[in-house]
């Protein structure tokens, strides 16, 4: 057992996913099973082995020519917003109703 239900609640909060209590239960079982299957990674002797974060070796700071490229038009960038007003993305208050700032 790697994770308790409480741990899973914490992860869900960090990942910004609202889980119901029964979902937390199922997720705890699934995640523990998956983490168990990752064991081979922890059993290797990796002393002195460099990590490979990217499959193409030697790829650093790829630059393009410094020329102006137009981005999306304002309306096009807004077209998929679930909620907008005055050409801006509309969201609920960040602090909610309890904000005292």
């Amino acid at each position: 057992m790697y994770l308790t239900e409480n741990d899973v609640r914490g992860i869900a909060t960090y990942a910004r996913i609202g889980l119901a209590d029964d979902e937390v239960k199922a997720m705890t079982i699934d995640l523990n099973n998956i983490i168990e299957s990752l064991k081979p990674i922890t059993e290797y002797d990796l002393t002195g082995v460099e990590p490979t974060f990217h499959p193409i070796a030697g790829l650093v700071n790829v630059m393009r020519d410094d020329i102006q490229i137009d981005g999306l038009a304002h309306n096009d960038a807004m077209q998929n917003a679930p909620s907008s007003a005055d050409g801006q993305f509309r969201i609920p208050p960040i602090l909610g109703d309890g904000g005292e700032a």
């Binding site: 609202g18 208050p93 909610g96």
Partner: peptide, 11 residues
């Protein structure tokens, strides 16, 4: 009613 819960519910 706040942005954090919006994220959580929508996701």
């Amino acid at each position: 009613t706040d942005l954090g819960s919006r994220y959580e519910q929508a996701r």
